[in-house]
């Protein structure tokens, strides 16, 4: 099976879907002539032209809204945020328009569109450019939310997101675009809403997503060296959550740790803990632990940033704690 980078897998997904359906187009800052700030859209302008690879001015509210209006009128936009940090200025468009217009119109409109781009911390970008947005975007109905960690998942899930008739928020990562992995040559789709077991195990369930996946897998390796066999579950879709996959694993291991990029207060991590605590209370042998950002604004300095971010060692500590091995 050939290997490719996540950015190439994303590009292949967009390319295939644009070739498949004339209504699919890409819009965002530097997606065209610059070939994409992170080269996800490289070559697409040359192939599809200005009508379908649309460079925008720096106007997230404007082009998010245009994407929404275009989707209502029958197109299938892929709106790229150079980073989800910039989506903050377009929040009203996603919250009040993308997520609500189908409902407000009693089903008269569909919004088949994708908002995609890198999310969460990269490396030494300080507080405004290091934020994880899943807790905001999972916090309201009317959207689906995806976060990918491998080229295989990136391609299969982005293709499904583009074909979905709902607004899909699709998280990538600046520091993961070059991550390589196997991607089949033949076409495939990954269903939205299905988690994936990235490492089978029997002692502790480690639930993770996005940038957390590599941290969780590294933490699981450290735990294995100490005789603890972790099952690492990559949620991949954060809304709707795959309750069944999480609960099946937890009922087997009776212990659970979450490893993710994002703040601890509220949000997706807290939602997972709440659901598992209520739905699997009798199966839990220890309180669920969370390994995530410290509840702080991200500092720039490398040593400080490292302290705020979750590490494999932090994951190991939590895994040992729920195993009463600390």
């Amino acid at each position: 099976m050939p290997t490719m980078q996540i950015r190439e897998a994303l590009r292949a997904a967009i390319d295939e879907e644009m070739a498949r359906d004339d209504r699919v187009f890409v819009m965002g800052e530097e997606v065209g002539y610059y070939d994409g700030a992170y080269k996800v859209t490289e070559g697409l302008l040359a192939k599809y032209g200005e009508q379908r690879v649309v460079d925008t001015p720096i106007a997230e509210t404007g082009f998010s809204g245009v994407g929404i209006g275009a989707a209502m009128a029958g197109l299938r936009p892929i709106v790229e945020f150079m980073t989800f940090n910039f989506s903050a200025v377009a929040f009203d468009q996603l919250l009040n328009n993308a997520a609500k217009l189908r409902h407000l119109s009693a089903g008269q409109f569909k919004l088949p569109m994708v908002f995609r781009g890198p999310n969460a911390a990269a490396h030494m970008l300080s507080s405004t450019h290091s934020q994880a947005f899943e807790s905001f975007y999972c916090g309201f109905p009317g959207v689906k939310v995806i976060s990918v960690a491998t080229p295989y998942d990136a391609k299969g899930l982005l293709k499904s997101a583009i074909r979905d008739d709902n607004p899909v928020i699709f998280f990538e990562s600046e520091v993961m675009y070059a991550v390589k992995g196997e991607v089949p040559e033949e076409e495939y789709l990954i269903p939205i809403g299905k988690a994936d077991i990235k490492r089978p195990g029997k002692d502790v369930t480690v639930i993770t997503w996005g940038q957390g996946v590599s941290v969780a897998l590294a933490g699981a390796e450290l735990a294995a060296a100490e005789g603890i066999d972790c099952e690492v579950i990559d949620l991949r879709t954060l809304r709707p959550l795959d309750d069944e996959a999480m609960e099946t694993s937890l009922r087997k291991t009776n212990r659970c740790v979450l490893v993710y990029h994002g703040w601890p207060y509220g949000g997706t991590g807290a939602e997972v803990v709440d659901r598992l605590t209520r739905n699997c209370f009798d199966h839990l042998d220890a309180p669920i632990e969370r390994v995530c950002y410290e509840d702080l604004n991200m500092p720039y300095a490398e040593n400080l940033e490292k302290l705020v971010l979750p590490s494999p060692e932090d994951a190991l500590s939590a895994i040992k704690k729920v195993s009463y091995r600390d």
Partner: peptide
């Protein structure tokens, strides 16, 4: 912007 999006379409 949504109205502009209809016109874009």
């Amino acid at each position: 912007p949504v109205a502009a999006g209809h016109a874009f379409a």
